[in-house]
Amino acid sequence: MDGLKETLVIWSAELRRAMRSGRAAVLLGLYSMFTALVLLVIGWIAREIRNAVNQQLANAGADMDAPVRIAEEGRKGILGFLIGKDTALLEALAQVPIEVLLVFKVTLFFLPAYVALMGFDQISGEVGPRSMRYLTVRARRSSVLLGKFLAQASLLLGLVLIIDLAIFTFASITNPDFGFAAMSLNLIKFWLAAIVFSLSYVALTTLCSSLFRSPAVSLVFNFILLFVFWLMDTVGKFVSDESALRGLRYLSPSFYASNLLHPKLTEFGVSGAAYAGFATIFLLGAYGALRARDL
């Protein structure tokens, strides 16, 4: 059996096992509850702000167009804070409800941790009890690694699609101006952005799971690396332009997330290439660790 067939067989078996397990349902439930909580809180805050502004304007006797202008200015300010001052990007997201953008940003921040919880034992869970040796007798180690990586990525792809579909359906119901065509187009864009973003973190989880025999140690080390990447991105953003620490942000996957929704193919391509590069580096490291390990 060649490498491709081995990978496909392992991917199919691992995906079926993951879908039959209770973990997939639990993780979907956790992701759904967290997203729903964020969406409800953000929606409530936005509604209260709008009501307060409208009430103050009504008491002051302002003209009827004032709430619209104030809402538009507030939206531009929030968009500028979330995605920067890129005019093309601002125009591309003009139809998307602000609640969706806020939820997307918040969930994107926590998505790497969710990925770690989903697959921290994909390799170490079999290396520890030495059941991995039965797989590697029949298939190449590279095929086992890629099969497990693709199984986790496929499961994540489906879970994210379910959550994004629920978010955009809710946004379409609560925002009459957000029609079906705009909802469908932006659903695909946001889903694709989340997948490109998360695949590098799936590869990072594969690397961490390959380095240790204990799943618990793999999970802790994964969270440590996530914190290090977050710290590098944060420090790189807030130090002065002349500081040598400014370049740290380019070593963090999170830095490249801002252009994943960009309408220009070149801007999106740069971010996509960066995440592909991170995923490749992490997978090569995982393969090196698994190849050197005594199974």
Score class of each variant (00 low, 15 high):
Pro263Met: 07
Ala279His: 10
Leu187Lys: 04
Val68Arg: 12
Ala153Asp: 08
Asn54Gly: 03
Ile45Val: 15
Arg23Ile: 05
Asn51Glu: 10
Asp241Arg: 15
Ala94Ile: 05
Thr87Gly: 07
Ser210Pro: 02
Ser124Leu: 12
Trp44Pro: 03
Phe238Asp: 00
Ile45Asp: 10
Ala71Val: 01
Gly179Asn: 15
Arg75Val: 04
Leu159Asn: 03
Thr7Arg: 11
Leu199Ser: 02
Arg133Gln: 14
Pro253Leu: 07
Cys208Ile: 03
Ser258His: 09
Asp86Trp: 06
Ile45Phe: 14
Glu72Leu: 03
Arg130Asp: 08
Phe104Lys: 09
Ala71Tyr: 06
Ala58Cys: 00
Thr206Phe: 01
Pro112Phe: 00
Leu108Thr: 14
Glu14Leu: 09
Phe170Asn: 07
Gly277Ser: 14
Leu211Met: 15
Ala279Asp: 15
Met132Tyr: 06
Phe110Tyr: 11
Ile173Gly: 02
Leu146Glu: 01
Leu111Asn: 12
Asp294Ala: 11
Ile167Gly: 05
Ala139Met: 11
Ser214His: 12
Lys148Leu: 13
Thr280Asp: 03
Arg291Phe: 07
Leu57Met: 10
Arg69Asn: 02
Arg17Lys: 12
Leu192Cys: 02
Arg138Ala: 09
Trp44Gly: 04
Leu27Glu: 09
Lys264Cys: 02
Ala88Pro: 12
Gly61Asn: 04
Ser154Trp: 12
Val220Ile: 15
Ser154Val: 13
Leu146Val: 08
Ser209Met: 02
Phe221Arg: 07
Ser143Lys: 13
Ser240Gln: 09
Val100Pro: 12
Ser154Gln: 06
Arg246Ser: 03
Ile83Lys: 04
Leu248Phe: 10
